[in-house]
Simulated assay, not measured.
Amino acid sequence: MAWVVLVISGLLETVWAAALGASKGFSKLWPSVLFGVALLLSMSGLAYALRAIPLGTGYAIWVGIGAVGTAIYGIVAMHDPLTVGRITCLVLIVAGVVGLKVLH
Rank of each mutant, 00 (worst) to 15 (best):
I93G: 12
T70G: 02
L50E: 11
T14G: 11
K101F: 05
D80T: 12
L20S: 10
P81V: 11
Y73T: 14
S32A: 15
V4A: 14
K24F: 07
L34W: 03
V37C: 06
L100H: 05
L29N: 08
V84F: 04
S32D: 05
A17E: 10
W62Y: 06
G56N: 10
S23Q: 04
A52N: 11
Y48Q: 06
G99A: 04
V97I: 14
R86F: 06
A38Y: 01
I8L: 12
W62H: 02
G25T: 13
T14M: 15
S9T: 11
A2E: 11
S32P: 15
A77I: 13
A77P: 03
A18H: 05
W62C: 00
L90F: 14
W62L: 00
F26M: 14
Y59N: 01
G85H: 05
W30P: 13
V37T: 06
M43W: 09
V97E: 00
G45T: 04
G85F: 11
I53H: 07
V37G: 09
F35K: 09
V94S: 01
L50Q: 15
S44D: 04
S23A: 08
C89L: 11
V102N: 07
Y48G: 08
M78C: 07
K24A: 10
A38S: 15
L50P: 05
G69M: 01
A71P: 01
V97Q: 02
V4Y: 09
A2R: 05
T70C: 00
G85V: 07
V102Y: 12
L50N: 14
A52E: 15
G58T: 02
A38E: 01
V76C: 02
I61N: 00
I93C: 07
L29Y: 13
S9K: 05
V15R: 02
I93S: 07
G66D: 00
V33S: 04
A38P: 08
L55E: 00
S44I: 01
A22F: 12
L12G: 04
W30C: 12
S42H: 08
G99L: 07
T14D: 11
A71K: 02
G85Q: 13
T57F: 01
V102T: 12
F35Q: 10
V5P: 14
I61M: 08
V91C: 11
I8E: 12
Y59M: 02
V94R: 15
K28R: 13
L29I: 10
V5H: 06
G64M: 01
G66T: 08
G21M: 05
